[in-house]
């Protein structure tokens, strides 16, 4: 069997056992990296540094930096690097404020399982349906008093 065919067979077997490489979930990739002691953020920082060197080589040769290389550099630019434009500074500031707000808000949000355990006190629930006859008599008396006061005031005004 030639090498190409053999590799194709191995690829089919690997795909059947572990799935297609392009379908690796990010969470699994991160776990794999951490298993062997690679910190994902540090990996990206090292990549950024290598891309900087590549871009510099283009500039030294007075050639245009390939657009994909520029794009990758922008994506990987670490937050610790100084902002290059006012827009970038604003965006970062806004993002930082949002993160702080989210962190503060998160401290006041009760977990859903705690809420589900809560029950409302029945002491005041459906209070209006529990009006006693005595309550109704008091309300009626106050209503009559109020009406008679109004009538008296009207008479006084007319005089």
């Amino acid at each position: 069997m030639n090498t190409r065919k053999q590799n194709e067979r191995l690829d089919r077997m690997s795909e059947a056992l572990f799935g297609a490489p392009e379908n690796i979930e990010l969470v699994d990739a991160v776990e794999d990296l951490k298993t062997v002691g690679i910190e994902p953020e540090e990996l990206c920082s090292r990549m950024y540094e290598r891309l900087c060197v590549e871009a510099q080589a283009y500039r030294m040769r007075r050639e245009n930096v390939p657009p994909l290389l520029k794009k990758a550099l922008e994506s990987l630019r670490p937050n610790t690097a100084p902002p290059r434009t006012q827009m970038e500074l604003d965006r970062r500031a806004s993002s930082t404020v949002s993160q702080i707000l989210d962190a503060v808000k998160a401290r006041f949000i009760l977990p859903s399982n705690t809420l589900s355990g809560l029950t409302l006190s029945t002491a005041f629930r459906n209070k209006e349906l529990e009006k006693s006859t005595k309550d109704q008599q008091i309300i009626d008396r106050l209503e009559n008093e109020l009406l008679s006061d109004l009538e008296n005031e009207e008479k006084e005004d007319a005089d």
Partner: peptide, 19 residues
């Protein structure tokens, strides 16, 4: 880089290389 973010792509490529 439009389909997958560069950061994610690097992490996945490295994880695949490990495998």
């Amino acid at each position: 880089l439009d389909e997958a973010e560069a950061r994610e792509l690097i992490q996945k490529l490295t994880a695949f290389a490990l495998r």
